[in-house]
Design a protein around this nucleic acid. Structure first.
Lengths: 333, 333
DNA sequence: GATTAAATTGGAACCGCTTCCAATAAAAGA
DNA sequence: TCTTTTATTGGAAGCGGTTCCAATTTAATC
């Protein structure tokens, strides 16, 4: 691997000049530039990113932290950020927090230590205070799916409660009265907020809240199936199940069919997130659209604008959860 | 941010000594070590990864290149590598190749330039020669899902042809004779190999190959649906469809149902990869298991062993595609 | 053609850490 | 106690770039 010194020597100039050519500085004469380019080609020179990063304190890299790398939701998010930035020659460094506070911190520090120019975070275990502190730090941060009261300008999120409300409201609008709810882990704020929205919708329609219709699950298919089994054991009466996310809903579908329930006529099911899953199921899953791709793009654009001074000219609209009606939700006959 | 100099000063020793403490070198007296640790805590010192990387030519990072970040298949792969390495304090840097040769190269160079200690690649556009050249380079490489004749020791792959064979054989074994095939893009070697396997199975059973039963698609749901429509337009007779991957199969399911075909009794469908999708569909999708998670883990272990000298003590078995029978495949009555 | 201003270049310090080699201190052996 | 050996330390030269400042060239003005 050749270095900038060798290029300078071959081109017959100083390293500082080569550096200028490298970084498109003005004030380099055309002929010098050409000599340098020639030398670079000759030597097959590729600048050492690490050295550049150390000297310049920049990296042309954005760090992305998500909970899990498998999982379509985060894949979509990461992909959105990546394509957005890649179009401008910026790269991303992805790492996972695994929903654990210390791993999340570890991941964040790793990204900062790698001189990332900015961070995009989808964290769930770390505290608000920690994040607030982080926002005050040197590295610009964009926080997804979380609303920090002290620094709203760093956050891109959507109203989970409103989404939960929309889902249950849609179910009620189709005549359902006995509505079960399978929530995600209540320690996760989004799960809690969605459930809040559900309760609100019930309340608004004057439907009494019945705790025996609610089960807490993990955000996974298997857990959703188990939760549904619990529901059945309770021998409570319900005509629809609203779920904390699509995976849970998918588990419910399987479990319901295993129990001999015919879908969608005997039971309506609604998910949340509107992931690919919703299109894979049969009947297709009604869900609340969580525009994670658009939000990832928005995060990318925000960074391009604010960190790299690249104007993407696109205005970011506010993100609203919208209910997507599909066959898994049927009116109560 | 404090530097190693400040730590040295506060601890009253040389930077070289601090560096030794940092890297657990032997030959540092207990009391010096303690003084240094004290100073590090006092200053809240965090070593600068970039500087370390520049000086040591290492990074404790493994680069991972996949085609797309969204897509469950690659998510699973990336997740497998990540968890495996994270357990030993190694991080991964993920980037995407988008199935384009120049983006793939760009991504690979990016990873190498970031001083990655090793690379895990799932590339599809780049040439065998380029990869062979890469294998000869300084950075250790693990190549997934591709068999390079010149350097098999770098490759972890499974026999796509055998997988394709197994799928169609299973279909034939259930009495089907008119079997449609919707392939992935033929320019991709895995798509081609799977199709080869299909043909082989037909041949072995003495079923004549009928080109009007074959459609080439992309590896996506929508494309699968379109391909199925093409198949219907041809007015050819078939009782089963074998697909290049699960997404295609999923698209076929939708399209078939839209055409009023009842599943699985009127039409059997088989996928490939055995992704999560297979568990989301109804009927559940028979598929060929592609143990991508295990292969990712194996890649991680290989690197831990060969690059970091960390013995994971687990032997890697050979990877065989296995047919997973599920309800979407029914015997022909 | 001399003078001044502007454009180009070169030099060197610096980014923060590693690592080799020499110097010193401690331990062991005579 | 005095060598000899061994364990600890310090010093300094990199790693490969960036960037500020001063020096040199070139162009512009009179």
């Amino acid at each position: 691997m050749s270095t900038i010194y060798q290029v300078a020597k071959l081109a017959g100039c100083a390293v500082s000049t080569v550096s200028r050519v490298l970084n498109d500085h003005p004030n380099v004469s055309a002929k010098t530039k050409e000599k340098v380019h020639y030398a670079m080609n000759q030597l097959n020179y590729r600048p050492n990113t690490i050295a550049k990063s150390l000297a310049s304190q920049r990296s042309d890299c954005v760090g992305v932290l998500v909970s899990e790398l498998h999982s379509g939701f985060f894949g979509t998010l990461t992909g959105a950020v990546e394509t957005q930035l890649r179009a401008h020659k910026k790269h991303i460094i992805v790492t996972a927090g695994h929903g654990d506070a210390s791993l999340e911190k570890d991941g964040i520090e790793f990204l900062i230590d790698r001189n990332c120019d900015a961070l995009v975070l989808h964290v769930e275990a770390v505290s608000d205070e920690y994040l607030a502190e982080l926002c005050r730090g040197k590295t610009p941060v964009v926080i997804l799916n979380r609303e920090l009261p002290t620094c709203p300008e760093h956050c891109i999120s959507l109203d989970n409660e409103q989404g939960g409300f929309a889902a249950t409201q849609a179910v009620i609008a189709r005549g359902h009265k006995n509505i079960a709810y399978i929530s995600g882990p209540m320690r996760k704020h989004d799960a809690r907020e969605r459930w809040d929205g559900h309760c609100k919708a019930l309340q608004q329609s004057g439907i009494a809240y019945d705790p025996s219709l609610v089960v807490e699950a993990k955000f996974t298919q298997d857990s959703g199936a188990e939760a549904f089994a619990v529901l059945l054991q309770r021998k409570v009466n319900f005509s629809a199940v609203v779920c904390g996310n699509d995976e849970i809903a998918c588990g419910v579908m399987s479990a319901a069919r295993d129990a001999g329930i015919s879908l969608p006529n005997e039971l309506s099911i609604v998910g949340f997130d509107n992931t690919n899953i919703a299109s894979y199921t049969y009947p297709k899953l009604a869900s609340v659209d969580y525009p994670i791709f658009e939000m990832g793009q928005a995060a990318g654009r925000k960074i391009l604008n604010e960190v790299y001074d690249i104007n993407t000219a696109e205005k970011d609209s506010a993100f609203e959860p919208t209910f997507i009606d599909r066959a898994s939700l049927q009116p109560l006959n």
